[in-house]
Structures are given as C-alpha cells and as structure tokens.
Computed example of a mutant assay.
Amino acid sequence: MTELLRLSKRMSELGLCSRREADEWIERGWVRVDGKIVSELGSKVFPHQRVSVERQAAAEQSKRVTILINKPVGLVSGQAEDGHQPAISLVKAENRWSECPVDNQFHPTQLMSLVAAGRLDIDSVGLLVLTQDGRIAKHLIGQDTTVEKEYLVRVEYSRPGRLPEKDLRLLNHGLSLDGKKLIPAKVRWQNDDQLNFILKEGKKRQIRRMCEMVGLTVLGLKRVRIGKVKLGKLPEGQWRYLQEDEQF
C-alpha cells in the first residue's frame, strides 16, 4: 500500500517550496490537493495526488531575494557566535557592489528569513549564499544535493620534498572522515602552492581535514563557485543580488 506523506514534505519533495513555506501557504489556504483547498497543518497526501499552489504563493515567492556575499575572514556564516559577527551583518545598502547587475532596491525587510545556504569557516573567504527562497536552500544544502562547490586552497607541505602523486590521488578519492568514505572529489594543482578543489559535499572543515591527512597545511581557502554561479569580480566584504538568469 502506498504510504501517506505530510503535505508540507511532499511540497518540498516536488520542489514547490521549503517545508516552512509550505506550512505558511497551507495555513493561508494557498494549497490545493486534487483541486481542493487544504488548510489544515499536518494534512497528509498520497504521492500520486496532484498538489498545486495559488497564484498568491507564486507571487510572494517571486519577491524573495537571494544574495551573494564575498565573505571575508573573521565573519561566521550563520548566527553570531563567540562574539563574532555573522555574514548577514554585511547586507546593507553601503556594502552593495556598485556593479550589481540587478535593478532591485535594497530594503531591510529583505533581511527577514534570510538564511545561509551552506557555510564557510570563519577563517575562509569567498562565495557565500544567503537566501529567502526555500527552494534554493534545499537545492544547495538538502540531503541529496549534488551541486559542485569549487575552492582555491593555498597549502604548505609539512614533509620533505613535494606532495607525492599517490597522495594527490587520495585527495581525489580514498579518504574517510568521521568514519565515512568521502565521495569522489576533483583535486588538482592550480600552481606551485595552490590546489583547486571541486566537492559535491561539505562536511565540517572538510578540505582542511583532508589536507592534514596527507601532510598539507592550509594557509588560505577561498570558495570561487557554487554550481554555475561564480564569485567573479565581487569585492571582498561586498554583496550583490542573484540575477534572474543565474542558476546554481
């Protein structure tokens, strides 16, 4: 027998919105199942049932912003912690990149429900995504995400000579963290002291820990791409809006 699913979970699976958005829309009477409005939280549906949303939901979703920040060292990605400022503190009119291509006026209400879709360590720099759009957050940090993240990593080898080729192959595939094998990565030398990493997962301090395992010390780490969206010329400490034609 086909199993019943929570309506909010089913809406998230279908890519309509996040679960939190789904609950809001259900309460407002903006969700239909097989053409009938369902407004009770916790309602369940079968996978074969048709779920649709009213135009008001789509209109509200279109107003939600996604912001790209070039995060500097010393800021945390999410909530403020240990006296360190969060990256969202940079999102104000005076820090907006003068070359931002989106004709959108900044307003403090855009900070509401703006969450980091992924993280960068406090001592790492580069591309950080903050979004009000649950679909984008799920796409970037959901359990089944396969979105590539690209990093430039300045390293120093702590042993005599140069990193052996076999250890470079280990960085690409063969290491384990927290008792689990890492999925294959793409790691190559960018220049004499800098590696290029492309990952499809993001365990805590993953690159630094991978490097330690083969005798490398990370001196600097910069994220330059998430999916098809590049950091580009965005200056450190500044932000811009995601363009309509940009997709991760």
Rank of each mutant, 00 (worst) to 15 (best):
Lys180Gln: 15
Lys149Asn: 13
Ser176Met: 11
Gly215His: 07
Arg154Ser: 08
Asp178Ala: 14
Glu212Cys: 05
Arg223Met: 09
Arg209Phe: 07
Tyr157Ala: 06
Arg159Cys: 05
Lys186Leu: 10
Arg154Asp: 11
Leu152His: 13
Ile226Pro: 00
Lys204Val: 10
Ala185Lys: 01
Leu170Trp: 03
Leu195Val: 08
Val218Asp: 01
Leu163Gln: 05
Leu152Gly: 04
Gly179Cys: 02
Val218Pro: 00
Lys200Gln: 15
Leu199Pro: 14
Lys181His: 10
Glu212Phe: 03
Ile136Glu: 02
Gly179Ile: 02
Met213Ala: 08
Ser176His: 07
Val153Gly: 04
Asp192Thr: 08
Leu140Met: 07
Val153Asn: 05
Arg154Thr: 14
Asn172His: 01
Leu216Asn: 11
Ser176Trp: 01
Ile141Tyr: 00
Leu177Pro: 10
Thr217His: 09
Arg159Ala: 15
Ser158Cys: 11
Asp167Cys: 06
Ser158Asp: 07
Leu199Ser: 06
Asn196Arg: 15
His173Gly: 11
Glu201Ala: 01
Lys180Met: 12
Lys203Asn: 08
Lys222Arg: 15
Glu212Trp: 02
Gln143Thr: 13
Glu212Ile: 07
Gln194Tyr: 07
Lys138Met: 02
Thr146Glu: 12
Glu212Met: 02
Leu175His: 12
Lys180Ile: 06
Val224Gly: 07
Leu170Val: 03
Ala185His: 07
Asp144Pro: 01
Gly134Leu: 02
Arg225His: 14
Asp144Thr: 02
Gly215Ile: 09
Arg162Cys: 11
Ile198Thr: 15
Pro164Phe: 02
Gln194Gly: 00
Gly142His: 04
Met210Leu: 08
Glu150Thr: 04
Glu148Met: 03
Ile226Val: 15
Arg169Ser: 13
Val153Ile: 07
Leu195Arg: 08
Arg205Ser: 14
Leu216Gln: 03
Tyr151Gln: 03
Leu163Phe: 05
Arg188Tyr: 09
Gln206Thr: 07
Lys186Thr: 13
Gly220Ser: 14
Glu156Met: 04
Lys181Leu: 11
Lys204Tyr: 15
